[in-house]
Design a protein around this nucleic acid. Structure first.
Length: 391
DNA sequence: CCTCCACCGGAACGTGAGGAGT
DNA sequence: ACTCCTCACGTTCCGGTGGAGG
């Protein structure tokens, strides 16, 4: 035992401070986001003259620095305002937190609680939740800048939230509110009424994906702090960057990849992170994700996945085939199968979870359907099947 | 060019869980 | 005990559709 710990302590020296690679870490510098930072600061600056800043909508793919940039600018603003004795309050919520902030009611209740007005997380009408939330904002006696991250989650369920929020200022006595919405894609807001939309996005800010060079810069900056000297070689870093750039310029994934690569090296008692470690980390990350997602799947979803795996050596898998297989599995275990309609939605969910990748194709005479590719799954097929065996 | 397949995906509705308030 | 609230998860119904084959 002692030997294990000792060898661990002496051999695998990899990290200097690992938390720099963690998702929650907000860096002091955000390379290649200078323009966005400046624009955002400019948009919020009126708050320092006691004027209400415009409402802002921020667009950008995951891992493009939206959240980090916004929090950075927001906390700077709050700090400077405090120095000048101006009451500015910066409030951040992620609307994507399941069971906590992901509906209109829950968002209001959560914020009211956060701002010091206790409110039950369920049971009462939404209108009351809104009232309490509005009061909690008014309590601040400040210019409140409310950031709603992952706004799309909220809007998909109920577009009216935005209408309510956009009209809020007329009901506030002592405070003023300005809203920053952050969203992954422009489409989700298409369901929103045009006037509400324009009042909510008086200003727009777009975060383009990083390219490989930019990701490399980010990684270089962070890895200097995160890793000990000479642990990470440049080749590995470039490899990570290239991989992340290919996958939609997601810097978050790149950082995660770097962290996992380092952890693998650490565990192997090595103090080098090279290209091979990264390659290993990529497969590990993918399979870990698929496995953990699968484990928590509801019963019927597991059966559907099982049906997919059972036929995944066929060149083309269509919804109908999958449904057929699933129906069989369900009735074998004495369950009434879900409808095709529902299964279709579940397949969509699988897609967005990254378990499968599918697209709608037309086979002309033979109808229009979803073609499912199981490429992501085939490598972990046996692992998954073992997991699903008693489903 | 038209048809018609095999689904897609929106909408409305039902049910039961989880939880107020009275 | 009873009413009222939201919400996840399903079902039912149905209009819509890209393109191979006639």
């Amino acid at each position: 035992m002692t030997r294990i710990f000792e060898s661990f302590a002496s051999k695998g020296q990899v990290f200097r401070s690992k938390h720099v690679l963690q998702l929650s870490y907000v860096p002091e510098r955000l390379p290649h986001r200078e323009q966005q930072l400046e624009q955002l600061a400019g948009m919020l600056a009126p708050a320092l003259r006691m004027e209400i800043p415009s409402n802002i909508l921020i667009y950008g793919k995951p891992g493009t620095g939206k959240t980090a940039s916004t929090i950075f600018v927001g906390s700077e603003l709050e700090r400077i305002a405090a120095e000048k004795g101006i009451r500015v309050r910066f409030v951040y919520v992620n609307a994507g937190l399941k069971k906590l902030t992901d509906t209109e009611y829950r968002l209001y209740a959560y914020l009211a609680n956060l701002l010091g007005r206790p409110f039950p997380h369920t049971g009462l009408p939404t209108s009351q939740a809104y009232e309490t939330f509005a009061q909690s904002i008014d309590d601040q006696k400040s210019i409140v800048i409310l950031v709603i991250d992952e706004l799309d989650v909220l809007v998909k369920k109920n577009p009216d939230v935005l209408y309510t929020l956009s009209r809020m200022n007329s009901e506030l006595k002592n405070s003023k509110i300005s809203i920053i919405g952050i969203t992954n894609n422009l489409n989700t807001l298409s369901s929103v009424d045009a006037r509400t939309k324009s009042s909510l996005s008086e200003e727009d800010l777009i975060f383009p994906p990083y390219n490989a060079d930019q990701i490399a810069d980010i990684l270089r900056e962070r890895s200097q702090e995160a890793f000990l000297r000479d642990v990470l070689d440049e080749d590995a870093l470039l490899f990570v960057s290239a991989h992340a750039a290919k996958a939609h310029g997601d810097a978050r994934r790149a950082l995660e990849l770097l962290r996992v690569s380092g952890e693998m090296a650490e565990r192997e008692g090595s103090n080098k992170v090279n290209r091979e470690k990264v390659a290993k980390a990529i497969t590990k990350l993918d399979s870990d994700h698929a496995l953990s997602v699968t484990k928590t799947l509801p019963h019927h979803n597991k059966l559907i996945l099982k049906a997919i795996l059972g036929r995944c050596d066929e060149p083309h898998l269509f919804t109908g085939d999958i449904y057929e297989g699933y129906e069989q599995l369900a009735s074998d275990s004495g369950l009434t199968p879900l409808t095709l309609r529902r299964v279709s939605d579940i397949l969509n969910e699988f897609d967005s979870m990254g378990l499968i990748s599918s697209k709608i194709i037309s086979r002309g005479r033979y109808g229009r359907t979803r073609a499912v590719s199981t490429k992501n799954l085939s490598s972990l097929r046996t692992k998954l099947e073992r997991l699903l065996i008693h489903a």
